[in-house]
Amino acid sequence: MSLSVPERIMACPRFQRLAATRSRFAWTLAALVLALYYGYMLLVAFAPQVLGARLAEGGTTTWGVPVGAAIIVFSWLMTGLYIRRANVEFDALTDAVLEEHAR
């Protein structure tokens, strides 16, 4: 019995490596962003004075301002990091797998 194209791809070690690497990378980044966000939320809930502390002695701006902005900027940069790796490494691997089995 001959295998279908998806079954052959599924059995291909290169594809398995691609799928495993990519999903590890994606889940790691997702976990990082969510951990950061919910960590921040826990801080807000249980230790608000940390974020309410002044940046500089006698100043008004609190730590909460740069920390909050950093969460937005950091999670955006993480999407950039993902794209960078996906565009170079994952797309090339995907093309190679498709080339081998589907064309």
Binding site: W27, L29, V33, Y37, M41, G64, S75, M78, Y82
Partner: peptide, 17 residues
């Protein structure tokens, strides 16, 4: 601001998953 951050964080998750 806390509220705005909550509105934003779903986006990276959509990207990754």
């Amino acid at each position: 601001f806390i509220y705005a951050i909550g509105f934003f964080v779903g986006w990276p998750v959509i990207m990754f998953l």
